[in-house]
Amino acid sequence: MSRTTEILLALAAAALVLLLAWAVPWLRFVLTIALAKGLAVLGILLLLRAGQVSFGHALFLAFAAYAVAFGASTIPEALILLPLAAIGAALLGLVIGLFVVRYREIFFGMLNLALSMVFYSLLEKFYAITHGTDGIRLPPITFAGQTLGSEAQGWAMLVLALVLALGFGALVRTYLASPMGQALAGIKTREARLEFMGASGRSVLLAAYVLSALMAGAGGAVLAMTSRHVTPALAYWTASGELVFIAILGGAGSVFGPFLGAVAYELTRVYAAALVADAWQMILGMVLLLVILFAPGGLWGMGRALLARRRAA
């Protein structure tokens, strides 16, 4: 798919999201949350390129969400809180990354999981600071200095999430085509060769890890400002599993996958929960099974194959 086609497709998808949110008002919240999670899943996709799966990336999402919650009382401005929280998550990603990029595969995945659970416990146990499982309600925040009504605030968050999705999507696409991104894919097939070319596989992975933490942080900040409430559940290991689930559901072959997967996931969850309240997780499980068995390229891969077939016919 050419670059122009992808840009047009991305803009069309963004327009579709806005249209959906306008036509079905209660979807606006769901779509904003989906895009926020999509940002974190974009980070999972980066690591997947290196053949590594993090089962703890909700850590960075939750870290930024809590950073927003704590920061909101002193700096109640969305456009300052968001970059601060995301950069905070990236710095935490650097510190943790220096440690975890020494490991590969199951050890990499489990170390991420362990660290995220440590963070979860801290959030849960330090009741005096974090209010434990009750979580923290966000005070009202301004948007570019304006105090917005809840309707306008909802739209602002959706547009912000869209802009971040488009921006980070373009960045990751460029990154993956660059020497750093291609070397990242080289970690999966022949990391030893990187060393024999005078390059460090660990550094290549670390760079991607920090970027993934930055994006998860941006997603977490949007999530916190949209839901106006943060709880330790954001950092629980199932939240991390959800991100990996979405990555596989959407497809890791393109930067469209994470967002397509996240929107499909959130919509399925909302509708399935409404229709078959007790069985929606079973439905999600079946969907994942079907994707793995019949569409390893995920929803994005399926869509692209259909498009290609139609064009060929």
């Binding site: 460029t174 990154y175 085509a177 660059s178 020497p179 750093m180 991104g181 291609q182 070397a183 990187l194 070319m197 005078g198 390059a199 290549v204 760079a207």
Partner: peptide
């Protein structure tokens, strides 16, 4: 790798 891998914005 010889030239330095660290250019994330230009294609390989």
């Amino acid at each position: 790798a010889r030239e330095g891998l660290w250019s994330p914005l230009a294609p390989l």
